[in-house]
Design a protein around this nucleic acid. Sequence first.
DNA 1: ATGCTTGTTCTGTGTTAATGAACGGATATC
DNA 2: GATATCCGTTCATTAACACAGAACAAGCAT
Lengths: 255, 255
Amino acid sequence: MAEEHSTEVSSVNRTLRVLETLRDLQPAGVTKIAKSAELPKSSVYNHLETLENEGYVIKNDGEYELGLQFLPLGEAARQRLSVYRAARTEIEQLGSEMGTNAYLSVEERGLATVIFRHLENEIDLGSIGTTVPLTTSSMGKAILAQLPKERVDEIVDQHGLPRMTESSIVDRDALDEELEQIRQQGFALDRGEHVKRLRGVGAAVLGPDGEVRGAVSVAGPERELRGPFFEEELPDAVLDVTNVIELKLMENMSV
Amino acid sequence: MAEEHSTEVSSVNRTLRVLETLRDLQPAGVTKIAKSAELPKSSVYNHLETLENEGYVIKNDGEYELGLQFLPLGEAARQRLSVYRAARTEIEQLGSEMGTNAYLSVEERGLATVIFRHLENEIDLGSIGTTVPLTTSSMGKAILAQLPKERVDEIVDQHGLPRMTESSIVDRDALDEELEQIRQQGFALDRGEHVKRLRGVGAAVLGPDGEVRGAVSVAGPERELRGPFFEEELPDAVLDVTNVIELKLMENMSV
DNA sequence: ATGCTTGTTCTGTGTTAATGAACGGATATC
DNA sequence: GATATCCGTTCATTAACACAGAACAAGCAT
């Protein structure tokens, strides 16, 4: 909120806005994007042209689409995370053994970002790159529970306690209690706090330094995730996997 | 080379250059990026600051890294491709059944871009988003063989016939012969034309309209891919898969 | 303590990104 | 089939602001 002498490059902000609206509207033409982004048509046109010349945007019979040049950027962004490299295969195995969708997410800018998933089920909480509030998912809560208290305060200040469903935690004291319980049992449960009737089991992955590197979770519909399967078997499986990943992270250190 | 009245937004080009050098150098500081991109330090700094405010770049103890915001953009770029949605699971099955790495790639801007892969083997021809010349891989040649002749001319004019290894096709007539043979047999073989001792088998995927939508391939080291396994079994398996994908693409039409 | 880094701030100036109107082409409308 | 409306694209002007390079501060190594 406090910008003194703006050191920002406004054209860049503009391009990013164009790209984000294109992402949501694609395929789309100049006019459509300009209207949605509330920018002059000619301006949007110039940006799209520039982006197209570099391959970041593709023109297909008059309509624009995002170019595949973004793939290497996204890939480089997640390849830099050692937890991604260590967890990939483990997540796939976890998902196929349990017969559920399995996810790997990391915290960035106060949100949980899904960086890898294994699908068994159509009911999905979001594709690669999706962000969810840390307070309304098993992965998010598992991460939060391992962050220093000040960081939790920061994040809650910044993002609040969004009420995604009627089960979402919206009270700060309730959150602290929940986090304490998660620390004690080692895993987090989500009973429709993010999406109604969608349940999940998540646990944090700690690095060799003891810092949170991310979280693993499995998720599925209420009717499949219940009873001892939900409350015992899945937590055990998830904890096994986070344990293996943590060991892999240690090996990478010593090599 | 022929720019009349430049309608390009130069700041955008600048940002893209910063991002691309960051992608190759990350984690990196302002000075390192500025030197490599041959841009003034302050300029790079301003761009990085702007990108960081939007989450496209992350600052970790003084060093910059690509932010996870690129994941949704990359994901949106490939999700728009119906062949990606149809081929995902088939590629995984193909790879695990054959015990080889399996790839899905599409042509964009005259290059083959890998948009999905299944790994069984360490020897890899490149991660998601990697581009390879169409003339030096089984996927690329399979795609080329299905493109209209004028398009092939365009692409060869633009990218030439790069000699990646001593086996690469560098003669235009030889290419045409090869493409004709690929059309007849339905699949393409790569005998170390892209990387020495790396072999591959690829076949194109055609859409309901008869246009090329991409190509599937399996690849592995020479010592594993040889004899009837390389020349018969793998081609059969790849063709089976492209066939299934093509059928899926037709279903999606009618739904 | 001193010499190098590094990231960051600053300020003027020249470039150029932004703008809205106008063009021409295609499609839709009646 | 004529007219109207939409689209992408071009254009010219002007104000804005991105750029650059030097100066600053902070860290690290020597």
